[in-house]
Design a protein around this nucleic acid. Structure first.
Lengths: 352, 352
DNA sequence: GCTTGCATGGTAAACGTTTTCCGGTTCTGG
DNA sequence: CCAGAACCGGAAAACGTTTACCATGCAAGC
């Protein structure tokens, strides 16, 4: 029958005990050069590979980091994932990856249980959620459970649901980004700005709307609820929604602030099909600065979010949380900045 | 000290033996309803989570599937990854994911060793590679080692390096796709077609060039080596290379067949910046049908590759390889087809 | 020459499960 | 009323490592 080569097999071939083989391979105990050579040769000849399960059973740490990601295909997520994976590798750990089963919070928690079985050193949750009281309670309990086991909950691009939770959280300043890019539009003379896309209760969307509103107010403009069109963070939503609006008559706005680049690219496509020129007739901006922003025509002015850095930082903070320099730095907020491209033009006033 | 709740802890609280708790939780042995209730209650109260390491140490299978992917950020790869992850979840397994360390074959093999330590039921290699004799030898050895351990090597979007290897391989018909789309251009009157991008020795590029050549020959046109510009499968390469060509004088071709959509999008950008209209002046086609193909202007005519299906199929074939219906179906080649959009126009002959 | 100490390497326990074997109790049928 | 089956649950071995503890041999110090 198929069987894997074990430490004992190597030991037998090298004529030593299993303990000695382990010591040679891990280098934790002095072994004579001669024995070392014999052991290494035997291990190599037999194509020996240690059994991580057995090792982590006796040892204290599994060397695993679990990552839960909604959709590996979405640029926003997979760039965070790249940062995560990179740093996990650099820290000599291995990633275990899972997409939550469909079914919202319940599905997410079910998937987390599966991951928890692997005794990961940390569980990283990537991306925004719809925050409910139930969510707060369950995630809080999860954070405490993990902490009690010596593991760690990590929130990536998602705020902490409660203060004082034993969790590592790395966010980006979505509100500042939204404020900045809305101001960018305002200072170009746009006062009627459509906010397009993003789930209403989502932790991703909320700060973006808040920043948008704050910028308007600071310019002395009362936000018009009719100019906020929530939906999803997808290209399709941007496309359909702008279609709907344009089909209903001439638009009531001079600029669109899409809550993300995907929705923006959909909006762009719809506008083009309706013969509306961007940025001549209507300006469009996005959020996230994902690769598509450079392939749209015109290239999108958007808000850059340091996605990979979010991932890297999250792993760093979480795995080194016991070291003095990171001990009290378990909550990071990374900055965002506008990336100016070609999709905004100053508004030419009809009646100056 | 931090310690995880074990089977014994639950057993103690429920007033039964560890064996009984195990039986209740796995459902492998009849246990009285009453005892079951007690055990479940205790387990729930203590927030018990089984230790997968311990379980897989005694049991036969780890429930892990290892995936090695060069760049989770590349649409070509992450769509395969989504298919893989989806199916892995459906089969009640967990994904472990790794990006190879930089350093070509050596790095890839080092990463594989790390993954091998986790005793995965399969190791999936995603995407093309530069095939060398050394590669063939090492991968062959790997496939045999894994097979001897009861695990499985899976090649995804990459051909088998040798016949008769104990490996599961799922490819797509790149040559047919290239043939079809080149024919599409030819039948629109294009005879001077630039092949753009793709690494020269890469298993991804080779069939595409072959299909391109075969189509030309079938049309009675001798392929012109000067019209093949190898490089990388990136947007940047497409952009730079077309820049170079256009800066050097007026182009010697009427159509571009980019070896992938990324390069095509770069080419499109360069052409636009040079005032060359697509498809009016020059037609452009791509390969892969990744999401950007719909956001470029004009939308790209390209070859659709069933990326997610490749991933799903790979997992299915590999995990069920011992079942009769899959036993002799360990090599699948999935079909490709042209996706017509707006980037091709029939050539108007100067002198008819 | 006898202790002391270091270098080396073996023995065995431990990690948390699953599973085999077995013992005891309760049915069931004759 | 008894033999046997069916049911339930405990004890203990096993999985492949790491590591604490111990044994041996040899050199050095007195």
């Amino acid at each position: 029958m198929k069987r894997r080569v074990t430490l004992h097999d190597v030991a037998a071939r090298a004529g030593v005990s299993a303990a000695t083989v382990s010591r040679v391979l891990t280098g934790t105990h002095r072994v004579s050069a001669e024995t070392q050579a014999r052991v290494r040769k035997a291990a190599e000849a037999m194509d020996y590979v240690v059994n991580a399960q057995a090792r982590s059973l006796v040892g204290s740490s599994s060397g695993l980091v679990a990552v839960l990601i909604t959709d590996i295909t979405a640029p926003f997520y997979n760039r965070i994932a790249r940062g995560l994976a990179e740093q996990v590798g650099a820290e000599n750990r291995v990633c275990i990856l899972s997409a939550p089963q469909t079914g919202g919070l319940e599905g997410e928690l079910a998937t987390i249980t599966t991951l928890r079985q692997q005794s990961p050193e940390a569980i990283v949750l990537v991306g925004g959620v719809h925050e409910s009281p139930d969510y707060r309670k369950r995630i809080g309990a999860l954070a405490r459970s993990l902490d009690a086991e010596g593991s760690r909950l990590v929130l990536c691009g998602r705020p902490a649901p409660t203060k004082g939770l034993p969790a590592t959280v790395v966010e980006y300043d979505g509100e500042a980004g939204a404020f900045a890019i809305t101001s960018h539009l305002l200072s170009a003379g746009h006062e009627r700005i459509l906010f397009l896309g993003g789930g209403q209760g989502s932790t991703t969307t909320k700060p973006r709307v808040t920043g948008y509103r704050r910028a308007l107010e600071e310019y002395g403009i009362a936000p018009d609820p009719k100019l906020v069109a929530h939906g999803h963070s997808t290209r399709d939503f941007g496309y359909e929604e702008v279609n709907r609006i344009l089909d209903a008559g001439s638009p009531d706005f001079t600029a669109v602030f899409a809550s993300d680049d995907l929705a923006a690219s959909g909006a762009l496509a719809s506008l083009r099909e309706h013969g509306t020129r961007v940025p001549n007739d209507i300006s469009v901006v996005g959020f996230d600065d994902i690769p598509v922003a450079v392939d749209t025509v015109p290239a999108l002015t958007t808000v850059h979010v340091p996605l990979e850095e979010i991932g890297r930082t999250a792993i760093q903070l979480a795995l080194h949380r016991h070291e003095p320099e990171f001990r009290n730095a378990q909550h990071a907020v990374l900055g965002t900045h506008i990336k100016v491209r070609d999709s905004v033009r100053p508004l030419v006033r009809r009646r100056p």
